[in-house]
Amino acid sequence: MDILKPAVAGTLESCDAAVTVEPRPAGSLPLLELVVESSEGRFAAKVGVAARAALAELGVTRAKVTVRDRSALDCTIRARVLAACLRGAEPACGAEPVAKAAAPWEALK
């Protein structure tokens, strides 16, 4: 899945995470850049693992992804990364708020 425009999902409330995805200009390395900032530092590594797994589910290989974690559980990290990517996968022009990329439910375990 290609990230075509910047998008955000989630909040900075406790137990949530705010995830930002941005397109990566052609030629910039690494292709996938993941930044994790966590209020619970002892879980920062796990948050990174959960975020990468969610990106892999959608086949997102080129993007800059920022996860600002507020002690979210892994399933919340996953949901917010998926939502941000699906939102960012929509073309920038003429996108209506409700017309986001449909989630590929059959591919999500």
Binding site: A9, T76, A79, R80, L82, A83, R87, A103, W105, L108
Partner: peptide, 14 residues
């Protein structure tokens, strides 16, 4: 969309 994904992921893993 976000709520649907959140409930989906929560139900799948919790």
């Amino acid at each position: 969309d976000a709520a649907r994904l959140l409930v989906f992921c929560a139900m799948k893993s919790l």
